Simulated scan of single mutants.
Amino acid sequence: MTLTFAEAGEQDIPDLTRVMTRAFDDESRTYRGLDKGGPEGYDNGDFFRQWMLGYDETTGYTILLDGEVVGGLIVWIIPGGHNHLGAIFVDPAVQDRGIGTQAWQFVERTYPGAKSWRLETPAWSLKNHAFYERKCGFTKIDETDSPDGVMFVYRKIIHPD
């Protein structure tokens, strides 16, 4: 099993969208009892066009297992080092193999100057909470309301100011 990461571009959007759709729909079925569910544009590529390609501060990556796209992530690199993890997802067919944890370790290695990382995830997404807290070392710091429902806000301090 060889896991690699590659910077993503427009050409990767179809593969990333297929994987994101499977991952988000699986979470929606598991925790909400709905067949489909995710942020706007998650299932047609618009999510990546907006959040991965739409801002200078963002960089997207494909997660490849033996050369096949099995996940992705988007990071926002903010001046001052207080960065944002915009998305991280792994195909349900290969979850629980440490791929998400290795993806987070890749982020930390790739951006060693980060002072902190922040992210938001739906309150109902229990597996995400366990992953961010237990596997990645994040701490829940807040709850916010969004059009998609209550979101939990997490933060991980790498280097205190």
Rank of each mutant, 00 (worst) to 15 (best):
P92H: 00
E120F: 05
L85C: 06
P92I: 06
R109E: 14
S116R: 10
P112C: 07
T110Q: 09
Q95R: 14
A103Q: 11
Q102A: 15
R97S: 04
Q102G: 09
G86P: 10
I77D: 06
I77E: 00
P79N: 11
A87H: 02
R109G: 03
L119V: 12
E108K: 15
P79E: 12
R109K: 13
A87N: 15
E108P: 01
P92D: 00
T101D: 01
Q105W: 05
W76M: 10
V94G: 03
P92S: 07
P79C: 02
V94P: 03
S116D: 08
Y111A: 03
D96K: 11
I99N: 03
T121I: 03
H82Y: 15
Q95S: 07
E120V: 01
D96C: 07
Q105I: 05
L119F: 11
G86H: 14
W76F: 09
Y111C: 01
G81Q: 12
P92N: 10
I99T: 09
A103M: 03
H84A: 11
D91S: 10
G100A: 01
H82K: 15
G98R: 08
I78H: 05
V94E: 08
L85R: 13
H82W: 01
V107L: 15
V94M: 07
E108D: 07
K115N: 12
T101L: 14
Q105Y: 05
P112L: 14
L119D: 12
G81M: 08
S116T: 03
N83K: 09
G98D: 02
N83F: 13
P112E: 08
G113L: 14
I99K: 00
F106R: 03
P112V: 06
H82M: 11
H84L: 15
E120L: 03
W104C: 03
Y111T: 13
Q102M: 14
I88E: 04
N83V: 02
L119P: 04
T121N: 04
F89R: 00
T121Q: 04
K115L: 14
A87C: 12
R97W: 06
G98W: 11
T121L: 08
V107H: 09
G98V: 08
W117P: 10
W104N: 08
T121C: 08
P79Q: 05
I88Q: 06
P79T: 01
I88R: 04
A114F: 07
I78F: 03
V94T: 03
Q102D: 15
W104G: 00
G113H: 12
G98L: 13
I88P: 10
G113S: 12
Y111R: 05
Y111N: 09
H82C: 14
Y111W: 15
E108Q: 15
A93F: 12
A114T: 15
L119R: 08
T101S: 13
Q105P: 02
Q95E: 11
A114C: 07
G80F: 03
K115P: 10
G113D: 12
G113V: 03
W104S: 11
S116I: 11
Q102Y: 09
P92G: 02
Y111G: 01
Y111I: 09
R97E: 14
A93H: 02
F89S: 02
G113Q: 12
P92L: 00
